[in-house]
Design a protein around this nucleic acid. Structure first.
Length: 831
RNA sequence: GCCGCGGUGGCGGAACUGGUAUACGCGCAGGACUCAAAAUCCUGUGGGGGCAACCUCGUGAGGGUUCGAUUCCCUCCCGCGGCACCA
């Protein structure tokens, strides 16, 4: 009887569907576990073979934890707002909602064909009005708490997508999505004050269990820097300027000031005779792209303002320059410059600005080249020519100088989140602009939030989805929709026509899974508490005491989705909507599945593998096991067709091994060796699943099957009990195959996915005899068998008894003997 | 430039707190079955030497610590990922 994966998989998938096998409720009698994978964007191409890697891994954990008696929530949904559906709509004239529905149906079919134990009754779709109603509601709360504001800002504009991008969506000066070089445009945008949460987003990384590379990336992105601000007076003026520095110790060497070309104070500082030169320079800077500005690493440009400032340390007048290497968006947009910074040094050399060194190396090494200004010394060291601070080290001097010259200041690289998108297929931003209220001052900005009872603001049906070059959303053309009454003064008002970025819906979807059909709230506090809070932990402490238990997703979302959703969650915690301060207690990332050629899969390379084809040929269980066996979970791995047939061979061997005997009495009895193999199998698979080491868990199962086959050929087949253990531990990986075999051989009422996870005794693993390595001078010269309780003397005697070992003693003296029980004996010999 | 991760057979990769390097899988070679092939099963498989027992070299390179190093330390080379004119 052959292993017919098609009929077996169909049979069990239908049963799971019919019986709602994996639907969960809030059962307080059980330990809860909330496992989460990033929900997919339902593209027209269908599932990528990369998706099953993450989903299967978490499904294995979910099935294992369930077998272990835990109440497991493992939900799935779709993140369906976004550009591809809209672009496809433009091309075909179909409504994005129609396209999205088709794609979701296809994705759902594919996911079900892989046998995942998702609770499908909790499916959420971000484009569903009953869902985005709450996305809009969260926006209103952010607005109420002054965390959403509209401001004119220079933003990154993608001329191809015709959309403004968040800082996080620009990679190497290019659009993250399409790779087109971005332009700088000034535009009114809704912004979210994520910077207000910078410190907590950074500090609370200590309270969560994230893979270290994820933490590091978030830390880098937030980019906290502790330093000081220093005030400089302007000569012949009442004006003062403020600079930020982390190197206050170099203040005595500060011989000029540099300001960002965009700095608003410039108009007060540029002298009449310098005005033309400055205007030229600023004009030239504006025409450069961000990429061009960055590329000028070696060739810094700038212009003198004509004004001078007083260095508070030396009381000397120092020139104020403008240069585009100083960024308006960081610090105060002004720096003081000195000989101990590479950029300042280069800039001063180019424009013949005087420099002065005030720091020498701490180790006292020769500093003539530094003093002669031939090279730049930018490290910390020992101060000189710095009045009472001379002789101090940089670290000693900084706090002392701060008392006299500066105020402590913390700066972040993180910038506020640009939240407006000029496209159709996104959540409408629930705000209206009222001229009347702006004039009367009842809403000074003119922006009035839509009342919560009016949510959701539905996307209107439009004729055309085309984005515009002017940066206006297609919604702006829908005059009937745009025209509305002001909720405040009931006068004429206009709706906001920009929509939210696709990161909005995914920032909180895991909360909705807890209570997906709630029409009164985003989710009920009781349900959120059940699924998010670790039992028995004090609630509402500042430390994270819960969240999703384990969240797996792509590395590419570390500075986007992960940071955004932590921000929203912390806000929702502050307004007492959610019970934990962090959304995810644990976060891991999977490695990419590459094409057979080791390259990223892409249509243009022609190396794309379609999961449907693999399922048809080899079966869902085979692709599940293969994707986890392919290599360490966190590493990228190339697809390999021969590797997949190896996995299929393994499952075939399980199939033939576990088919029922005509006469079950012919099976063997449990030997100590079998007992040991079974115990080792349970231990290895149990531990490896929890550590996401699936490749070695599968290897252990293969070894067990090889052992079972060896027993068969020796005419002592392993007993049914051992076989059943194999089926239970293999169940999370190959749920269909094991369900079928279990039904045929187990003689039990309970189905395999409800069978309890097996336990083992540590003593069953220990062998009576151990093989001990015998080394001479650290080199292996033989092995001996010893009983487990052997004394040290017996170890040495046995080692001496080995013929090959004895040969190495001829003409030598044993200086030392090292015995490691159960491991080895090592003789140290000399001539 | 800075930060992080990694470099092990022909290939994907194993190796616990330093203790028999190369588990498991792929590939390859030989054998069984077959008219033959495929599938399946069995055996072998790091390099060099030897009829063999064994010997020797071997985890990117070089050095160090240790009875013993893929594992710890130093220097360097290469690859991957992130950040990057951040004052």
């Amino acid at each position: 009887m052959v292993y017919d994966h098609k009929s077996i998989e169909k049979k069990w998938q239908e049963l799971w569907e019919r019986t709602s096998a994996f639907v969960v409720t809030e059962d307080t009698g059980k330990k809860k576990t909330y496992l989460l994978v990033e929900f997919p964007y339902p593209s027209a191409e269908g599932l990528h073979v990369g998706h099953p890697r993450s989903y299967t891994a978490m499904d294995v954990l979910a099935r294992k934890r369930r077998a272990n008696g835990e109440n497991v929530l493992y939900p799935m949904g779709f993140d369906a707002f976004g550009l591809p559906a809209e672009n496809y709509a433009i091309k075909t004239g179909q409504h994005p909602a129609v396209i999205t529905k088709q794609n979701i149906d296809n994705f759902r079919r594919q996911l079900k064909s892989l046998g995942y134990s998702f609770d499908w009754s909790r499916e959420v779709v971000t484009t569903d009005p009953s869902y985005y109603r709450w996305t809009q509601w969260i926006f209103l709360q952010l607005y109420k708490h002054n965390l959403a504001y509209k401001a004119k800002a220079v933003i990154n504009w993608c001329p191809s997508c015709k959309i403004g991008l968040a800082h996080e969506e620009v990679v190497d000066g290019k659009c993250e999505r399409c790779g087109t070089q971005v332009e700088q445009r000034e535009k009114e945008q809704w912004m979210l004050k994520i910077t207000e949460y910078a410190d907590r987003l950074l500090a609370d990384l200590e309270t969560v269990d994230y893979a270290s590379r994820i933490k590091t990336q978030q830390q880098n992105w937030i980019g906290k820097s502790e330093g000081y601000t220093v005030n400089f007076k302007i000569t012949d003026s009442e004006l003062k300027i403020k600079v930020f520095t982390t190197r206050l110790d170099t203040l005595f060497g500060g011989t000029f000031i540099v300001m960002a070309p965009e700095h608003p104070l410039l108009e007060n500082l540029v002298t009449a005779e310098q005005k033309i030169a400055v205007d030229d320079y600023i004009g030239a800077t504006r025409s450069k792209t961000e990429l061009e500005r960055k590329a000028e690493d070696k060739d810094k440009t700038g212009v003198f303002t004509g004004s001078f400032a007083i260095n508070p340390a030396t009381n000397e007048a120092i020139p104020i320059w403008i240069a585009d290497f100083v960024l308006m968006g960081y610090g105060t947009g002004i720096v003081f410059a000195d000989a101990h910074d590479e950029r300042d040094f280069m800039f001063a050399k180019k424009y013949n600005i005087p420099l002065k060194t005030t720091i020498k190396p701490i180790d006292g090494s020769d500093d003539t080249e530094i003093r002669k200004l031939e090279i730049c010394f930018s490290e910390k060291g020992v101060l000189y020519d710095s009045e009472e601070f001379s002789g101090l080290t940089s670290d000693e001097a900084i706090p002392k100088m701060a008392k006299k010259f500066g105020q402590p200041s913390v700066q972040y690289k993180l910038r506020d989140w640009v939240f407006s998108r000029q496209r159709y297929w996104g959540e409408p931003i629930p705000m209206v602009y009222c001229k009347n209220c702006a004039a009367t001052g009842s809403a000074s900005s003119g922006w009035v939030p839509v009342p919560e009872k009016d949510l959701p603001i539905l996307l209107p049906q439009v004729e055309k989805y085309e984005p515009t070059d002017t940066g206006e959303s297609p919604l702006a053309a829908m005059r009937d929709w745009v025209k509305t009454t002001c909720p405040k003064c009931k006068g004429e008002a206009e709706r906001e026509t920009d929509t939210m970025p696709n990161w909005a819906g995914s920032s909180w979807y895991f909360l909705r899974y807890c209570d997906p059909h709630n029409s009164k709230q985003l989710a009920s506090p009781e349900k959120l508490k059940y699924w998010l809070c670790t039992p028995n932990s004090p609630s509402r402490s500042t430390k994270c005491e819960g969240g999703v238990d384990w969240y797996n997703g792509g590395m590419e979302h570390t500075t986007l989705h992960l940071l955004y959703s932590r921000f929203w969650h912390k806000f929702l915690f502050d307004i007492k909507v959610v019970p934990t301060s962090e959304p995810y207690a644990k976060r891991t990332s999977h490695g990419m599945v590459l094409g057979e050629d080791g390259q990223k899969m892409s249509k243009s390379r022609g190396n794309v593998v379609n999961p449907d084809d693999v399922i048809t040929t080899y079966g869902a269980d085979t692709i599940r096991v293969y994707e986890l066996f392919i290599g360490p979970f966190a590493d990228a791995a190339p697809w390999n067709t021969q590797g997949i047939s190896g996995v299929r061979r393994f499952l075939d061997r399980v199939w033939y091994l576990a088919l029922p005997y005509e006469n079950e009495a012919e099976r063997g009895q449990t030997s100590d060796t079998t007992k040991r193999h079974v115990a080792k199998l349970i231990k290895k698979v149990t531990e490896d699943i929890e550590a996401f080491r699936f490749n070695t868990a599968i290897a252990a199962m293969m070894e067990f099957v090889n052992y079972a086959y060896a027993c068969e050929s020796a005419k002592t087949p392993i007993p049914l009990e051992a076989l059943k253990v194999l089926l239970v531990v293999l169940q999370p990986f190959a749920p269909h195959l094991t369900a079928e075999l279990w039904e045929r051989v187990s003689k039990e009422q309970v189905v395999v996915w409800l069978a309890p996870w097996p336990r083992y005794k540590e003593e069953d693993i220990v062998e009576d005899e151990v093989v001990v390595a015998v080394q001479v001078n650290g080199k292996l010269r033989g092995t001996v068998r010893l009983s487990i309780g052997a004394t040290e003397e017996e170890y040495i005697a046995a080692a001496h008894g080995n013929e090959n070992v004895a040969r190495w003693f001829l003409g030598k003296t044993i200086q030392k003997t090292i015995v490691r029980p159960g491991k080895l004996v090592n003789f140290v010999v000399t001539e």
